[in-house]
Design a protein around this nucleic acid. Structure first.
Lengths: 354, 354
DNA sequence: TCCGTCCCGTTAATCGATTAACAAGACGGT
DNA sequence: ACCGTCTTGTTAATCGATTAACGGGACGGA
């Protein structure tokens, strides 16, 4: 016997397909009698209800929203920022019984003709979703563009010209960091950012045009906070992971002109930086100051000076924007707070080992 | 202008819908000429490619697999076991460009007539997926049943009679724990399990019929390992969370007959237990022994004796079973290893405070 | 008796795409 | 001149459901 369908049940039960549809979707439209018959026949055939794909096509609703990240999916599950955000988002989707589609995409291939892009963004094209949350991705990002082309409502956690977004004021937060460091006398700062590359790929001199939107903003803020005279260098060790922080730290510490402070774009990166400082017998906060971002769970135990942002709220609000029609806000700015701990202290020039 | 479709593009370009479909899916079937024309017209209309729902229906493929957990979605993102498993799973889905649909379901309502169940399991019905991974859920679980009814290929991480599964030998692992404790002279052990309830709900005497499949097996193993004469009590403080461990620990420590050891069903629960021990001024491993399960990242720093299981591999293998046609294994057993650290030690009877 | 309401089931159009089978023309070889 | 083979585009059936609009019968009130 082939797979049962609405029609096969209808035929066997001697009713129209409409009746079967109603039996499952609008019980009140049918007499109890007929409904029971239909359900019985359905059970007999092993028909468990209307097919998801068929229903999706006909109703134009998927009952699910998509999520895309700056970071590879398999890695996302170890990123505290992403996890907190997803947790908040899930609170909302759970309540509305909405599925969460985690979409993998791979932009390793930089070949950008229309076809290659379609291929690589296949999953973004094929996702059956009613809306999407784009975390950390700007308007220009290919995956965001695909979603926009598909006319799928989208909420971003980065500034957007046309769409809706929930953001933290990364620039102001950067300014707080910069000012804090400036106040401690730091004038030579290395900024550690994440890049889409695998962890462990050292980039001694980052092209600022390729930064994630939030990185650009934080960097700008740090510059502003430090004032015009500070020397600033931007390095990367790959995607947001401790290993990348380690690689970036080695980059920063190599050579003669060691910076007096290292500002990492996330606590995860900062934790890697701290690892390497210790390996180099440099005391964080004394020999070299270090800052992070997020105030992830790992930050407090490490004594890391960082910027707290309400990560879970971010997810929650993005979810509400997408799923709660009553919530019409188009742009929400979340507060941040500089949390000073022990990894920052007065600038101290490296002693010459000559 | 209405939303562009395959047909609207075909009409405007003066070709058949088949041609348009081929233009996007099988470029080689068309002359470069015609293809370019079609793509141009598509771009003009803002048509970004075949609609996902339509395509899904027609091809019978969704390009995504579902995941269901024992635990609520919003909580899943803070469960180290789940995260490791998901990470492994994502490695596989990423490679095959397959989406990951996290399905929320809510069984708070115990009313179980066919309709209420359909309602509550709505998301499981509606998910557009090609297969599913069920973590920790047995054949009898409603959500698993729905998936089975839908004839969706499913891989479980619990024993199954008909389907495929990737499991750890929980019973043997339990035996290891039991034997380890027995070897240290423990004869009075409280087992802490997770239940579907919110954290913080004390259950002083758990009905063993309601346990998750893995808990049942571990418990059986612990009994076997301890030998027939040991006194065993099973308590719960709610779903897998530190708070539940705390509540369960209070339950275990209350009253006169304090156990000499507490065996928790996960490291997360164990961490809560350790919290409370400290609060009661009891030294883990000296006054009371504690064991966990999983060897999650938190275990080593806490000195927790636990059973290591390859969580990430579990996800990876479940993914392969579902997505790699060459992988025909039907049941895989993963190894476990008892990791003895400092939270277990020789049994010591509580001193009477009379 | 007549008519307005309900109740409940049916008719039929439609959602947006894929793909086997076919056919027309081009091409090359003998 | 003839025929097999490619190449390239079309025809048309099909995937599985939803829902506005319709209509026949029962029922109640005047």
């Amino acid at each position: 016997m082939p797979r049962p369908t609405l029609r096969s049940v209808a035929n066997a039960a001697g009713v129209s397909t409409a009746a079967v549809s109603y039996a499952f979707n609008r019980p009140d439209r049918l007499s109890a009698q007929v409904r029971t018959q239909i359900l019985a026949e359905a059970r007999r055939q092993g028909y468990s209800g209307p097919d998801a794909a068929g229903r999706s096509l006909r109703t134009g609703r998927a009952g699910a929203i998509g999520v895309i990240f700056t970071v590879g999916l398999s890695y996302a599950f170890s990123d505290p920022y992403v996890l907190a955000m997803l947790g908040g988002l899930a609170e909302v989707t759970e309540r509305t019984r909405t599925g969460l589609v985690l979409i993998p995409f791979d932009l390793g291939t930089a070949g950008l003709d229309d076809d290659a892009r379609r291929q690589s963004l296949d999953a973004v094209h094929r996702a059956v979703i009613d809306g999407a949350v784009a975390d950390g991705l700007g308007d220009g990002h290919p995956a965001v563009r695909v979603l926009a082309d598909r006319k799928i409502p989208i909420v971003q956690s980065a500034e957007t010209t046309a769409g809706r977004c929930v953001v933290t004021d990364d620039r102001a937060a950067g300014r707080d960091i910069g000012a804090h460091l400036a106040g401690l006398g730091h004038t030579d700062v290395t900024v550690v950012v994440a890049s889409p590359a695998e962890p462990g790929v050292p980039v001694p001199d980052v092209d600022e045009g390729t930064l994630y939107p939030y990185s650009t903003l934080r960097l700008t803020g740090i510059r502003e906070g430090l004032g015009g005279t500070a020397r600033i260098r931007v390095v990367s060790g790959g995607r947001n992971a401790p290993e990348s922080g380690r690689v970036a730290a080695d980059l920063a510490l190599a050579g003669p002109g060691r910076p007096t402070a290292i500002a990492a774009d996330s606590d995860v990166l900062a934790s890697g930086v701290l690892d390497r400082l210790r390996a180099h017998r440099l005391r964080p906060g004394t020999d070299v100051s270090v800052t992070g971002f997020d105030d992830a769970p790992l930050a407090a135990p490490a004594g890391l000076t960082t910027v707290r942002q309400p990560m879970r709220d971010k997810g929650r609000l993005m979810g509400r924007m997408l799923l709660d029609p009553a919530y019409t806000e188009t742009r929400v700015v979340l507060p941040t707070e500089l949390i000073v701990r022990s990894t920052t202290g007065p600038a101290r020039l490296p002693e010459r080992t000559s």
